[in-house]
C-alpha cells in the first residue's frame, strides 16, 4: 500500500466531483462472537462522500457492524466474520490484505473520547503519523494546524498545543481532538460509533456540523442512538434489527415513508 500523502490542502480537494461512486461494498456479511452469529448476512453499498447513519435498538449489532469495516472486530477473542467487504474494488478481508494497512484507510472515532492521556494535544493529533514514521517537523506542524482548524479546535487550543495534555480538554473538545487524530492520517472512510453519546447537547451540535463538513472529504459511517441526529446529518440511513438489515436508503425517505413495518415502528418510537 502506498505511503499516506501529507498534503495540507487536501481537505477541500476531493470535493463532490465523485459523488455517486461506490466507496465500500459489504456483501453478505456475517459476524460471530465464538459460535454466536450476531450479524446475519448484511449487504450494503456506501457511496463516497456521503454520511450514512446506522440506527437500531441496543444489541442489534451496530457496533459489531462498523467494527468489521475496519477489522477491529477480529481483535476480540473468538470473533470472526464471513462474507466480503470491498473498499475501492479490493476485498479488505482477502488473506493477502494487511489489517494494519486497512485501518489506515478506514479511521474510527469512538463513543467515549479517548485521547492519549500521556500525550500533548499536538502529539495526539499526529500520533498516528509519528508512529507510522513521519518525522518532518514543519509538515507535522502544518497538519496539526489544518486538522485542528478543520475540527474547529484550533482557536480554542492554539496556546496550549504542547502545554496541555489531550485529556485536559472538555469532553466535547476531546472528541473533536479524536476526530482530528483520525483524519490526520488521511483515511478514506471515517467510522463513528455513537460519537456524541457521551457529550452535552451543545457539543453534540458542534460534532454534528463537523460530520457534515467531514463528508466533503471523507465517507462517513456513523452509529447513532439518536433518531433526530440521524435525520439531521445523514444522507442515507441503515436500520438494523437483531443482526438483520431491515431497511437501507435515503434518510428522508426512510424517515418519512419507510418501506418496512418494523422500521416505521422503530422510528416512531414504539420499541427500542
Amino acid at each position: 500500500m502506498s505511503e499516506i500523502k501529507i498534503d495540507s490542502s487536501v481537505f477541500s480537494e476531493k470535493k463532490s466531483s465523485n459523488k455517486g461512486n461506490i466507496k465500500l461494498q459489504v456483501e453478505d456479511l456475517k459476524a460471530f462472537y465464538g459460535k454466536k452469529e450476531v450479524l446475519h448476512g448484511i449487504s450494503a453499498d456506501f457511496v463516497e462522500n456521503e454520511i450514512t447513519a446506522i440506527i437500531g435498538p441496543s444489541g442489534c449489532g451496530k457496533s459489531t457492524f462498523i467494527r468489521t469495516i475496519n477489522r477491529l472486530h477480529e481483535l476480540t477473542r473468538g470473533a470472526k466474520i464471513e462474507g466480503k467487504i470491498v473498499l475501492d474494488g479490493y476485498d479488505i478481508y482477502d488473506p493477502s490484505a494487511n489489517p494494519v494497512l486497512v485501518r489506515r484507510k478506514i479511521g474510527m472515532v469512538f463513543q467515549k473520547p479517548n485521547p492519549f492521556p500521556n500525550m500533548s494535544i499536538y502529539n495526539n493529533v499526529v500520533a498516528g503519523l509519528k508512529l507510522q514514521g513521519h518525522s518532518n517537523g514543519t509538515e507535522l506542524d502544518e497538519i496539526v494546524n489544518t486538522t485542528l482548524e478543520k475540527v474547529g479546535l484550533l482557536e480554542e487550543v492554539e496556546e496550549d498545543l504542547h502545554r496541555k495534555k489531550g485529556t485536559d480538554l472538555s469532553g466535547g473538545q476531546q472528541q473533536r481532538l479524536c476526530i482530528a487524530r483520525a483524519i490526520a492520517v488521511r483515511p478514506d472512510i471515517i467510522l463513528m460509533d455513537e460519537p456524541t453519546a457521551s457529550l452535552d447537547p451543545s457539543s453534540t451540535l458542534i460534532i454534528e456540523d463537523l460530520m457534515k463538513d467531514l463528508s466533503k472529504d471523507f465517507t462517513v459511517i456513523a452509529v447513532t442512538h439518536n433518531m433526530q441526529q440521524a435525520a439531521r446529518v445523514s444522507d442515507k440511513t441503515m436500520f438494523l434489527f437483531n443482526g438483520d438489515l431491515i431497511e437501507f436508503g435515503a434518510t428522508r425517505k426512510l424517515f418519512e415513508k419507510p418501506d418496512n413495518h418494523l422500521t416505521e415502528q422503530y422510528i416512531t418510537g414504539r420499541f427500542g
Binding site: 475496519n70 477491529l72 481483535l75 494494519v100 494497512l101 485501518r103 489506515r104 484507510k105 479511521g107 474510527m108 469512538f110 467515549k112 479517548n114 492519549f116 500520533a127 498516528g128 508512529l131 507510522q132 479524536c178 487524530r181 483520525a182 492520517v185
Partner: peptide
C-alpha cells in the same frame, strides 16, 4: 483501558507499536 489499544489499532498502528 481497552479503548487506548483500540485507538491505536484504529490509527493503523501494529500490535507492537
Amino acid at each position: 483501558p481497552q479503548l487506548y489499544d483500540e485507538a491505536g489499532y484504529a490509527l493503523g498502528l501494529s500490535e507492537s507499536q
